[in-house]
Design a protein around this nucleic acid. Structure first.
Lengths: 166, 166
DNA sequence: TCTGGCCTTGACGTCCGCGTCAAGGTCTAC
DNA sequence: GTAGACCTTGACGCGGACGTCAAGGCCAGA
């Protein structure tokens, strides 16, 4: 199949597929006229990439999974390198979740405290140093992890139709 | 005080402070020679910005807090606009946490399943469609939220000394 | 034959919070 | 007076995963 069809089937764009190829994650045969030509194995690899990107993997982190598939395995996560990435991501996720929960608790506390001060004018706010109240949460865990980033949800098809050349 | 001192005291860089000014978050008086001149109120505003950035706020989202301080309030979150941002961030955080926990559970399941298959060669993997196993988690919550992003931990001072012009 | 739809490569744009460099002005201490 | 630490504006760079545009080649149907 050609690049447009693969993109549509994988719910992504031709630009993304060319980008994956450029990064060495995808390799395409060529027709006599220079068109890229893909088969079902390629489609499978693209689905793997998209699925992993969708749960917050960097593109580079999908490489072991793709190579595992290329090596003939039925699943991209059957290889030790893939499992290592799994474990690393798990640790990252745990750190991110911990940190986000700490932030969440802090924000909820600030919100409650300030709302209470606005409602009943009794004990306004526990007097403290004139520093941002939010700084009190500087005692939050896991600073130097790579980062917590999920661009959005699962990668949805960018547009409806296949019109690339408008 | 001048920009270098403020940067050092706020644990950030002169470049960041100029950037905040450019975005309209900071306003500096000027000395007769054109140098920026800051006071304690400015320092307070910068601390507010840094604290909020450190817990995942976009720069633009810190604006209500800064304006609240400029309006003379003791705390940046005493104003309704700030509280609205709190509430929005809280909802975002909840969505992010939910999603990350779902992903975490999915990854843990994949890891356990694959490790078990490698260890005891009994029931390899529940047979299913030849699709990325990870895709089974496409039933994850909260797709179209802005995003979950914490670049790292609290913003630490970028470097040790004040040497900007090397 | 010609139109239009797909494909090719190359290159620049996007977003965000700055880092970094360049070329020059200012101020203080010696 | 002069070194050197500080300041000014302007402009380009970065990272990640592409979007988008430009200029042109290939191919099928009417």
């Amino acid at each position: 199949m050609r690049i447009g069809e693969l993109a549509e089937r994988a719910g992504t764009s031709t630009r993304a597929l060319r980008y994956y190829e450029q990064r060495g994650l995808l390799s395409a045969r060529r027709t006599s006229s220079g068109y890229r030509d893909y088969d079902e194995d390629d489609a499978r690899q693209v689905r793997e990439i998209r699925a992993l990107l969708g749960i917050g993997f960097d593109l580079e982190e999908t490489r072991p999974f793709v190579e595992c598939l290329r090596a003939g395995h039925d699943a991209g996560d059957e290889c030790p390198a893939s499992l290592a990435v799994y474990r690393r991501k798990l640790a990252e996720l745990d750190a991110c979740i911990d940190r986000m929960q700490a932030i969440r608790a802090h924000l909820a506390g600030q919100l409650e405290q300030t709302e209470r001060a606005h409602a009943g004018g009794s004990a306004e706010r526990a007097p403290g140093p004139a520093t941002p109240a939010v700084t009190a949460a500087a005692t939050l865990p896991e600073p130097p992890e790579p980062r917590c980033a999920l661009t959005s949800g699962p990668p949805a098809a960018p547009a409806a139709s296949t019109k690339e050349s408008r």
